[in-house]
Design a protein around this nucleic acid. Structure first.
Lengths: 114, 114
DNA sequence: CCTATGTTTAACGCATCCGTTAATTAACGA
DNA sequence: TCGTTAATTAACGGATGCGTTAAACATAGG
């Protein structure tokens, strides 16, 4: 009932079928039936998983005739990783130095290619 | 019942109280009571959250007298981000180039400071 | 229109999650 | 030894998650 955005995103990622769906969508848009094909579960079950992913903002959907196409929307993954980055210093000793370097490069790049 | 490791990790992160506990532990080890203090829920509830975090490998625990201290173990966060990195190219256009640069720097650094 | 195809909704069962309060365990210390 | 403090386990209730099958809906197309 809290249902903050980050919780919804992580909960959506906490199911292997949904992660499998995202992996498939990384290769291109797909219909519900196409997404269901690799899994040994019913179509309604897949339909629900898609609704969860959509609610988390991880996919967007469009309809064309009787087909509903899903496409990956990675924005929430950026949010999730952004949250985890706060802990990165704990598991990557080189992070601070490399990150600083990265920022320098990025800033330079932005100056050269505005 | 699948309970692959990644699912357990993401599920553990899908609760705001547990993320709050991790945030607190990022500032240093703490006892159960200390961890419970900011939250308006009972001690047994916190105790369960800690068990979930421990099961996900996100914390390790030690006992000293009647106090049980928890400490952050960020390794699973690394795994989770590693999974998400597969999608990074979708949300960070500069990723490929910057990553290449990063690797070059890293390799150079390792040569210079073995 | 009628039917075939793709997808969703409805209704249900079962397991797990998250919280509670009460009881129990563990260890310290007067 | 007895009481206090720290934490966990037990037992329960309600909500949510994930699966099923059957029914409904939407659209193309003869």
């Amino acid at each position: 009932m809290a249902e903050d955005r980050l919780s919804v995103i992580f909960a959506a990622l906490a199911d292997p079928t949904r992660r499998g769906i995202l992996a498939r969508l990384a290769e291109g848009d797909a219909t519900v039936s196409e997404l269901a094909e690799p899994f040994a579960i019913s179509l309604p079950a897949i339909s629900r998983h898609l609704k969860v992913l959509e609610h988390a903002g991880l996919i967007t959907r469009s309809r064309s005739a009787q087909w509903r196409s899903s496409s990956l929307n990675p924005e929430p993954l950026r949010e999730a990783t952004a949250w985890m980055e706060r802990y990165r210093q704990f598991w990557d000793a080189n992070f601070d130095r490399l990150d600083a370097h990265l920022r320098r490069i990025q800033a330079q790049t932005e100056r050269n290619e505005p």
